[in-house]
Amino acid sequence: MGQLSSAVCQRSVMFPAIEHPLSPALTRGCPDTSTADVAYPAEVGYDYAAVPRELFAPAPAAGLDRWAPLLPPLAAPGLGEGGTPLLEIADGLLVKDESRNPTWSHKDRLNRCTTSAAVAEGAPGIVVASSGNHGASAAAYAARAGLPCVVLASAGAPPAVASFLAAYGATVLAVPEEARWPLMRRIVDELGLHPVSNLTEQHTGHAWGPEGYKTIAYEIFAERGGVPAAVFVPTGYGELLFGVWKGFQELHDLGLADRVPRMFACEPAAGGPLSRALAKGVPAVRVDVGPTAAYAIDSAVSGYRGVAAITRSGGAALLVSDEEMAAAQRELAGAGLWQELSGAAGLAGFRQLRDVEGPVVCIATSSGFKDLGVGATPPEPVEPTWEAVEARLRAAGF
């Protein structure tokens, strides 16, 4: 349990000697000093003598830097990635909200590590094939490291992602999806840029990248003082799934944790290459992907990382529909967490398996701002009369 609050009252900002009880909260200023012309705000007063001195004692480095001994050399400067909140939204159901990272997704943990490789190797820049979170994050970490960044993207990138790329000064090449990877390999071979996304037909990925995801496991363990029973992970290529599993496995190998949680991959039902690979007992497969709005995880290919995480943890791959993800997205929003559709896949998977005993953690990967079409529909205007406003509110159930 955290420290008890030292708050004792509310008081006028203009006249601090005028105090009011701590509750109810004053939402219209100080009632004793405000006038019709001036609303003097209120503030909270504290018993400062009761504030523990150790509250301000030096703490370990935050974010990924705290875990540097278990990561590749962090040669690239960070952006404060990691240290995201772990929120209990129901009894025994926790959500790790990765939208709180610098570019609003889990990819920041990966790109701190991959950009570090580029810096350590003296690469003249980095290149990434992505129309979503990965590209936005790579552009940010390249900018932070003073490196140019080339992003092979599609013309239909979400508005928020396009804005990120423009802000960071990335060179964006909008090409058909099937042309991305051949062009990326050519850029690497001829210009020497460092690739921070996949280059192979089946997904192998950057060796350093998933190491950054291990820190999610470290943070969960450090905050909870133990290991959850299961972790549900939105899954495309399986790098996040693998990284989180590896982090827990390391904790077990170091003698800090008594077990490793079961890992559940949550893939769009429109594709599901990891699920297919596990069913066939093969390292990886390619599938045809049907229509889905979960663009961030609609992968046609899987990689062996995902198979390893599932089989070694005794978990499973779950297929979730767009409707199930949308329901999970609404549930998270009802708890104050706005996730993109793909980011809600973990909770959607958990809702399929109601017999999993807790505590369980659902990884929520990215902000709802990253969804396609966000911002395209403005709110319907309402006449600024009480009659019109009251009618709208009554219709909303007030």
Rank of each mutant, 00 (worst) to 15 (best):
V285G: 07
S321A: 11
A395V: 05
D288K: 01
A335L: 02
G358H: 08
D355Q: 14
C362S: 09
P273Y: 07
E390V: 14
G334H: 13
G334P: 15
A308T: 15
M325V: 06
R276Q: 14
A395N: 08
A388F: 03
D288G: 09
A279E: 14
G336V: 05
A326H: 10
R354G: 06
T292Y: 01
A293P: 05
G336R: 08
G334S: 12
E390S: 14
E380A: 15
P291L: 15
A388Y: 00
D288L: 05
G314L: 13
D355H: 11
E324T: 04
I363S: 00
S321L: 11
E387I: 03
I297C: 01
L353A: 13
T377Y: 14
G315W: 06
A348T: 10
K280F: 09
A309K: 00
A391M: 00
L347A: 12
V301P: 01
A396Y: 02
E383L: 15
L278C: 04
D298A: 15
A391C: 12
Q329W: 12
A333S: 15
Q329G: 10
R312H: 12
S275D: 14
A333Y: 10
A296W: 02
G334F: 11
V320G: 13
G346M: 03
T365F: 02
W386I: 01
L319I: 04
Y304S: 02
V282M: 11
V289T: 09
R312V: 08
